[in-house]
Amino acid sequence: MAQEMKVEGRVQKSNKLRSQLRTDLIGLGFIAPWLVGFLGFIVGPMLVSLYFSFTNYDLLSTPVWIGLENYVQMFTNDDRFWKAIRVTFIFVFGSVPLKLAFALFVAMLFNTKRRGVGLYRTLYYVPSILGGSVAIAVVWKQLFGMNGAINDVLGFFGISGTDWVASPDFALSTLIILVVWQFGSPMLIFLAGLKAIPYELYEAASVDGANPVVQFFKITLPMLSPVIFFNLVMQTIHGFMAFTQSFLITEGGPMDNTLFYAVYLYEKAFAHFDMGYASALAWVLLLICALFTAFIFRTAKSWVYYESEGGN
């Protein structure tokens, strides 16, 4: 009897192993495109940049190994690094929640079958399409400038404005408003997420007499949580890496008050020819991003609901 069980166990084990191997192969097969790209084109350059971060590398001549010097310099003797950290944190914590809330709000507004909704969606997506060309930088500066449309509107209400972009006090807030304005991409993702929620759930809830507010909290939010999670992670990472707004519009100024981390990094790399230092900055940014992302992933277990795993 015992003998039998042992044999059975071994057979099961080897069956299990075989089926696991099969699964491995299938899985690797599916992710093969990415794996090839990752190993062929991503890992190498990433590790090279890690190597650069331990060198003195001016882009144009051979890197010279200097150990941890870049990192030491950064943490002990670089005011602008700390300034950039501060600015970037304010930017991320100011813009991400606002942008997501606004995007969700607009997505809900457009998640109907009313006439003209397709056109509205397009209109509201326009600011995001405009992106980061030179032309657009001029538009934003114009809009928030002393003689711009924002001040015209404020003047209508009797408030006298300033040059929002050039003001040391308001420049950063202006950039935050600007990225909130470009809420198009999370909005679209929310919209796609909303569309994927089975309509029957709402029908059943209505039958049970749940009002729209209850429906929102009991159905919409949980069903949308994978997408909220995605947007939160991506917007946080994008926030930390934000570059264009500051680079094109305020050029980091006035007085470094909009010095985004990525802008500082860029300046080091391509204006000051200090690619070694820039690489070190990049890896510190990666660590910061990773910490926050890991934190979001940790908490996800308690608030993200997956239909596919819901049954378990």
């Binding site: 500066k141 928030f144 002393m146 040059d163 050039a166 305020t250 006035p254």
Partner: peptide
């Protein structure tokens, strides 16, 4: 005052 020219940056046209 700086508010009137600072945001123009290096753009000669502004």
């Amino acid at each position: 005052p700086p508010e009137l020219f600072k945001s123009a940056g290096s753009n000669i046209e502004q």
